Simulated assay, not measured.
Amino acid sequence: MNVHLSDLARIAAAPSRIIAGLMSGTSLDGLDIALCEFTGSGSETKVKVLHFITMPYSQQFKEELKAISFKTQVELQKVTLLNAVIGSYSAKLILEALKIWGYQAAAVDLVASHGQTIFHAPISLHQLEPYPNATLQIGDGDHIAVQTGIITLSDFRQKHIAAGGEGAPLAVYGDYLLLSSTDENRILLNIGGISNFTYLPGGKNPDLVFSTDIGPGNTLMDQFVQLNYPGKYYDQDAAIAKSGTPSPALVKALLAHPFFEQSFPRTTGPELFNLSYLQNAKEVSGQLALSKEDTLASLCEFTAISIVTAIKKAIGDQPFKVYLSGGGMHNPLLVQKIGEGLGFSLNNTADLGIDPDAKEAVLFALLANECVAGGQTDFGHRRGIPGVTMGKISLPA
C-alpha cells in the first residue's frame, strides 16, 4: 500500500486528529488558519481550537486576486498560473504559522483548504440552459500537500454541487454538528463578503436545519471604499458610514431584485452584488449625485435590512438567538442596525466556544475530519444539504 494511504488510514482510525483549516473569503484580505484538534465525528464530534491566526496577503497578491475574481471574462493564463501560485502561497503561510506556534509540520495530520473563490455560478444567477450549478475555487491542493508534506483536502464545494446542492453555503454541516442546541432556536449569522445564516431549531431535528446565503455582507461596502478611498480596503469602525445619512430611495432600489424573493436555501456572490449593481440602483432611484458618505450609509442600511428580513422570514414567530461571526461583526453600525431591526442585541459564537473570526476556517477543518473519519451523519432531506463527504484528497510527494 502507498505509504501516504497507510498514513491516511491511520489518521482516520486514530482517536483524535490535528487539522489545519484554511479559509480565504471574498474580501481577499488574508488567509485564516485555524489549528484544531478533533475527536470523534458526526454527532460525537468535539473540537478544540489550538491556535488561530490571519496571515495577511501582500498588496501585490491582493491586486492579482482582484484582477481575476468575480468577472465573467478574465485572462485564462492568469487563472491557470494563480491556481498554482495560491496553492504555493498557502503552503508558505501555513508553514510560517506553524513556526509562530512552535509546531512541526509532522505534528499536523491534515490540511483542509477552502481555496479562493473566483466565480460562483448557481443556475439562479447564470440562467443558461442547460448548464448546471457551478463554482470555482483555485489554490491547488497538490501544491499545498507537496510543499508542506501534509495530506491536504481541498475543493470541498464540488461534491455539494454534484450531489444536488449549489456549492454554498457549507456552514450548515459544522454549525449543526458543533453548535446546535436541544432547547434553543439559533441563527448562526456569518457576515463575510456575502452574508449567510444557518437556522438551528432547538431539538436538533436535521430535517428542519438549513443554511442559506442572504445577500451582500461586506462586499458592496468594501468595493465602494476601495474605489473611492485610495489606500483603504474597508470602512474601519463604520467611520465613513456613520458620517452619512441613508437614502431611502437608493435603499429601496437596492432591495428591488428578484434574488430577495427566492426561497431558501439560495446562494449568490459578488458576481451579482458589485459596483455595477450599485450604479444601476443609483440610476433607477435618481441618486447619481448622492455623496460618498450617504452612499456608504445607504449600503450599510441595505445590508442590515436584507439580513433582518431574511431572518424574520426564516424564523417566523418563534423565540430565537442570533450568534454572529465573520468580518461584518466588527462593523458597529451594521451590528447596531441588525439588532434594532430584530429588536434585541446579538451574541457571537464566542459564547458557544468558537472564536467568531476563526469559525469558517474551523468549519472547513470539520469537513475534512468528517470526510476522513465520518461520513455517516444524517443531515436531513431538505434541498441543498446533501449528506455527503466533501473534499478532494492530495497526497504529499
Results as ranks from 00 to 15, higher is better:
residue 83 N to G: 04
residue 1 M to P: 13
residue 183 D to A: 13
residue 139 G to P: 01
residue 174 G to R: 03
residue 223 Q to V: 00
residue 249 A to F: 07
residue 83 N to I: 02
residue 159 K to P: 00
residue 19 I to K: 05
residue 175 D to T: 03
residue 82 L to N: 09
residue 353 G to F: 02
residue 5 L to V: 10
residue 138 I to D: 11
residue 397 A to L: 13
residue 89 Y to N: 13
residue 227 L to Y: 02
residue 245 T to A: 11
residue 88 S to W: 00
residue 344 F to I: 00
residue 286 G to P: 07
residue 52 F to D: 02
residue 19 I to D: 09
residue 183 D to W: 00
residue 46 K to H: 13
residue 26 T to A: 10
residue 208 L to H: 12
residue 78 K to D: 14
residue 287 Q to K: 06
residue 222 D to W: 01
residue 159 K to V: 12
residue 333 L to M: 13
residue 389 T to V: 15
residue 340 E to A: 13
residue 353 G to D: 07
residue 228 N to S: 09
residue 89 Y to D: 14
residue 156 F to N: 01
residue 372 V to L: 01
residue 18 I to E: 10
residue 166 E to N: 06
residue 28 L to I: 15
residue 56 P to L: 05
residue 325 S to V: 09
residue 305 I to Q: 14
residue 94 I to M: 12
residue 228 N to R: 11
residue 231 G to P: 08
residue 275 L to A: 06
residue 280 N to C: 06
residue 196 N to G: 12
residue 299 L to S: 03
residue 34 A to N: 05
residue 302 F to L: 06
residue 288 L to E: 14
residue 5 L to A: 12
residue 185 N to V: 08
residue 113 S to L: 03
residue 38 F to R: 07
residue 380 G to K: 00
residue 62 K to L: 07
residue 144 I to Q: 07
residue 177 L to N: 10
residue 345 S to H: 11
residue 59 Q to T: 12
residue 338 I to C: 08
residue 230 P to D: 03
residue 394 S to F: 05
residue 336 Q to W: 00
residue 113 S to C: 06
residue 274 N to G: 12
residue 105 A to T: 04
residue 315 I to N: 00
residue 164 G to W: 05
residue 365 A to S: 12
residue 54 T to A: 06
residue 240 I to K: 11
residue 284 V to Q: 15
residue 358 A to Q: 05
residue 11 I to F: 10
residue 269 G to I: 10
residue 209 V to P: 09
residue 41 S to K: 01
residue 347 N to R: 06
residue 205 N to I: 01
residue 319 P to R: 07
residue 27 S to A: 08
residue 132 P to S: 10
residue 373 A to N: 01
residue 219 T to N: 15
residue 241 A to E: 11
residue 148 T to D: 08
residue 26 T to G: 10
residue 356 P to F: 10
residue 279 Q to H: 14
residue 365 A to Q: 05
residue 145 A to D: 08
residue 338 I to Q: 11
residue 142 D to S: 14
residue 124 S to K: 09
residue 341 G to I: 04
residue 297 A to D: 07
residue 66 K to E: 13
residue 79 V to Y: 04
residue 46 K to N: 12
residue 92 K to I: 00
residue 282 K to M: 15
residue 146 V to W: 08
residue 84 A to H: 14
residue 304 A to M: 06
residue 55 M to W: 02
residue 75 E to N: 15
residue 290 L to E: 04
residue 274 N to D: 15
residue 342 L to H: 05
residue 169 P to Y: 05
residue 70 F to W: 12
residue 219 T to R: 00
residue 281 A to D: 08
residue 156 F to G: 02
residue 33 I to R: 07
residue 131 Y to Q: 13
residue 59 Q to D: 15
residue 376 Q to T: 13
residue 280 N to F: 06
residue 211 S to I: 02
residue 380 G to C: 03
residue 329 M to W: 03
residue 199 Y to A: 09
residue 103 Y to W: 14
residue 9 A to M: 14
residue 3 V to Q: 13
residue 347 N to S: 13
residue 209 V to A: 08
residue 377 T to K: 04
residue 22 L to S: 10
residue 213 D to S: 04
residue 262 Q to R: 15
residue 364 F to K: 08
residue 322 V to Y: 02
residue 316 G to W: 02
residue 177 L to I: 09
residue 107 A to G: 01
residue 315 I to D: 00
residue 40 G to E: 09
residue 102 G to N: 07
residue 144 I to G: 09
residue 212 T to Y: 04
residue 281 A to F: 03
residue 25 G to S: 11
residue 210 F to Y: 15
